[in-house]
Design a binder for these strands. Structure first.
Lengths: 203, 203, 203, 203
DNA sequence: AATGAATGAGTCTTCATTCAT
DNA sequence: AATGAATGAAGACTCATTCAT
């Protein structure tokens, strides 16, 4: 469909050249139509980019949900590893969307900024909720704060992984993936092993 | 000096709007001159941005060197913590340079791309060299490969920290800093504690 | 048609001001449109001028062909006179094209230079071929070299005529036309009269 | 001297790019100074070009005078030949001046136009005067009108020669030179031989 | 659903010129 | 005698957008 082609072309151009650099005429060319025709589908450039950005965010959400539905019953170490793996997979397989995300994270265009921060809020809430219930399923005695901190470490390590995808090649990314899982496992071991954090360590 | 003002203005505009979005007329206005005057100092836009990018990279290098000269004699945990702190400090204090860096990391302008990858190469070599000698000073028995791996973990965690600076607010960044130091310390303890990696574990 | 108007306007501006002096905004104004609209029809200034130059050359060729088709059966003196007349007519009736030609003959723009020299080559070959067959029709016994030399004289005198059109007024040009025909006729008489050049003057 | 260098540079640039195409900064560069310095020697661009144009015209006049002073006593055929030779020599040896002349002959800049037409007027008067007296010296009985016509033919053939220099290479120019002398000699022979033009060849 | 033709606003850049030094 | 620094005006060209078809 032409509209989809336009959104793909918009993402691709935006990811390479940013908002100002993504021109309607290049987007049209990539979609195989003439610039004037874009206006049949979108009111203007901002609207087109807005939809393109939304598509990127939706896609990301869908990717992460997928993993949860498949792996939420695994033990925490496996779950964290799988999620790290998915982060890497999603961002390497959708390089243009990832680049676009990197560009727009600090976008001065207020609409995009709001779109992103709304998404990050929603995504974060969802992630915390999912992780909390998954962790609790396997470790019902962990304190709320401990779980919360664990999730925070997971997110922090995930950030390292994300930026690694942006700047490294395939080999470097794989190494990072191992490092991420290792650091997380080490952290989890320390938390669970210490015992002090368990709610009722009944005797 | 006018030329310096232009470079500052270029960094600022580039960090907000990207290459295409940073206009000569805005840069000129920010530097307090007229657009035509830019061409007395720089051959064209690309050259101006090139010098601006170089200034960012030089500044980053200078910041990291500074820390090394002050802290290279501290024990590894302190050194890593200080370096993490410096990464955070440099990037929070120079927000526009950091945003610019994020934008240009995937720049489609080949000159900029080359500039960045050349820098990353140089910086990485320097960092590895410095860290290697610092670590070796305190742990002369560590094997080459172990040191190398430790540095890799340091860089990986540093990436998480960097991306955190980009997307988080002050509070979030401070939390990340703690997490970074904690994860690194935990990793180091594990490595050093294991003993198996020491070259001559003789008695 | 807008495109044709643009080419006319381009020729006119180019003939007055040369390549650098012919501005897109003046050309647009003369064609009754806005400067930006030129780019719908032509890729850029060079392309527009290139097409304008080509139009001039095509027009010149068409003019000369016309005369040949009408007069090729006349005797040589009449033919030469008619051709001289046509040279004068074409260049006086298309003053701007003639001025443009004078300017571009030494153009430093390599594309234009090539266009001209390609044309001169083609035109010259055609002219020689046509004249040769016309002359031979009336004087089958003339040697190849003699015909060739006669054509050379014709071209040389034509050059004087051409430059006369450029620098003289109407009266001066008419005087030149008489002179051209007179000199050529005199030359032809001498060649034909001498007899020595006839191939087989035996019986 | 810098001023002379500037005039040379101006001629050279003007000959290649025309009035609008000859830029002050290029001229300055060719003269080995900075653009601002031009204004120490010339009030503005028009003044500089005006002086450059004048230099070209003066040089041409000097060249033609030279030949006259050396050859005015030769018989008419030799004189005409020598003058043709000088025309060719002057214009081949001063290619940039010749190109400049071709460009400016139809200049829309009114000052230049006037300069040229004033010069052509002066030069023509001088030429006619010189030729008349030279011809009369050898052929005192020729009628005024006959001399005048002969000079006209000389000028006409000279025009062909001039344009030949502009468009031909060395070999072609030499051929033209032969043709010019031949045509002129033939014409002269016819005039002088006819006898009818001699004033009173009374006995 | 798509486009040809057109344009106002703006982009980068050049140019002739100025003026204090 | 020469220039560094600066600029208003203009140049070629791009861009998002419009509108009749």
């Amino acid at each position: 469909m032409t509209k989809d082609k336009l959104i793909r072309a918009a993402i691709n151009n935006f990811s390479k050249y940013g908002y100002q650099g993504a021109t309607m005429s290049n987007i049209a060319k990539d979609a195989g139509i003439k610039p004037a025709s874009i206006y049949y589908f979108f009111e203007n450039k901002e609207e087109l980019i807005r939809e393109a950005v939304q598509a990127i965010l939706n896609h990301h959400f869908a990717s992460m949900k997928e993993t949860f539905y498949e792996k939420e019953r695994e033990n925490v170490n496996v779950l964290f590893s799988e999620l790290f793996g998915k982060i890497v997979l999603h961002h390497t397989e959708n390089e243009d969307e990832t680049k676009a995300y990197v560009i727009m994270v600090n976008s001065p265009i207020s609409n995009i900024k709001k779109q992103i921060s709304d998404y990050l809020h929603t995504y974060n809430n969802w992630l915390v909720e999912q992780l909390t219930s998954s962790i609790r399923r396997h470790h019902p005695d962990l304190e709320e704060a401990t779980i919360s901190e664990m999730i925070d470490y997971f997110i922090f390590i995930g950030n390292g992984l994300f930026w690694g995808v942006v700047i490294h090649d395939k080999a470097g990314i794989q190494r990072n993936l191992t490092q991420a899982s290792h650091l997380m496992a080490q952290y989890v071991t320390q938390i669970l092993g210490s015992g002090q954090n368990e709610k009722q360590q009944g005797h």
